[in-house]
Design a protein around this nucleic acid. Sequence first.
DNA 1: GCTTGAGCTGGAGTGTACTCCAGCCCGTAA
DNA 2: TTACGGGCTGGAGTACACTCCAGCTCAAGC
Lengths: 123, 123
Amino acid sequence: MKISDVAAQSGLSIDTLRFYEKIGLIDPPPRDGAGRRDYDPQVLGWIRFLDQLNATGMKQADRIRYARLRAEGPQTCAQRREMLEAHREQVALQLEQVKNTLALMDRKVALYRDMEQEMIENV
Amino acid sequence: MKISDVAAQSGLSIDTLRFYEKIGLIDPPPRDGAGRRDYDPQVLGWIRFLDQLNATGMKQADRIRYARLRAEGPQTCAQRREMLEAHREQVALQLEQVKNTLALMDRKVALYRDMEQEMIENV
DNA sequence: GCTTGAGCTGGAGTGTACTCCAGCCCGTAA
DNA sequence: TTACGGGCTGGAGTACACTCCAGCTCAAGC
């Protein structure tokens, strides 16, 4: 796959893909005869996972650390598992917080509706 | 309340409190005889709400817009409600994503455990 | 065979959200 | 009465995560 295809299918920009490669989040792909990156489509799954870690607030530095362990091969399973378990706890807390905020916003919206209603009645 | 008390109880730093005031997220509190900020404890509730908007990904610019509407008084209820409803949708999507990621991480952790077990057996 | 477009590199620039600092003032405790 | 500790201001600095740019190469279509 060309870099433009990966960009289109992953939602990352071409610049971001190269940036991720530079900082070690994505393995440098092989190059074609003209020196252009030629990605294995499997990279899409990895990018999706990186996005999910990102969206749940994992820091770049930690994602890089995870990516490096992953690149080292199966002997780093235990460390990767520990990282995921630690992040899992963060995400679980986040889930509670997001639920609370959702409920709070629903209450506030209802409150504002009441206030609007009252203002109409008091004309 | 002194600024140090608000900082201690809100979890924000003193610098951040002054910064929030500067950009319009927090109303400028009255000053004591020596020119020091003297906060109404109610600000704590407002800061907690700001934190929740923050933690659910609302942009600074939008939080400022909301704060400005709030400062304008009850006639801005409808606009604030609209903002909250829009953000509510974002948060609901986020909730789904966080749930998915949590499930994915659980699967991955289980997978890594299996792999570790297998590596032990294959010694 | 020349133009066009995609991709390449290294490095500079951007936006967001703080965070820190110098140099000042003021009120309380020793 | 002087030495602290806490607070003040305006402005500079930082961290993170991209994003953009100049100037180049290469391959393919006309």
